[in-house]
């Protein structure tokens, strides 16, 4: 299995990563090498094996139903690239 340059460009776009053409070409080469190695896992018979998404599974972990203080607004905003009126400020998403 190999990945085309257009597929690399598409996945980078999905991941919100703006990359130059030279970087995309280098990435395509590295991805194809990795995907070749990924075929190794097909050598293991997984018939009937359950997927293991967690190292040590826990179930139904609930927080106590008690009010707790969160971060003050100023602290939550202190690392924002831009803020206004106590809110994160982002470029326009929907035009008028």
């Amino acid at each position: 299995m190999s990945i085309s340059l257009d597929e690399v460009r598409h996945v980078a776009k999905l991941a919100r990563l703006e990359m130059g053409e030279a970087d995309l070409v280098a990435l395509q080469s590295e991805l194809n090498a990795l995907l070749g190695h990924f075929q190794d896992i097909n050598a293991i018979d997984v018939t009937g094996c359950q997927p293991k998404p967690h190292a040590v599974p826990r179930q139904n972990v609930w927080a106590d139903d008690e009010p707790v203080f969160g971060l003050p607004r100023e602290a939550a905003l202190q690392n924002a690239a831009a803020a206004k009126a106590g809110l994160f400020l982002v470029p326009t998403i929907i035009e008028d």
Partner: peptide, 10 residues
């Protein structure tokens, strides 16, 4: 960047 793209792909 490489790992993010690999992760997004798989």
């Amino acid at each position: 960047r490489t790992r993010i793209v690999v992760g997004t792909y798989v």
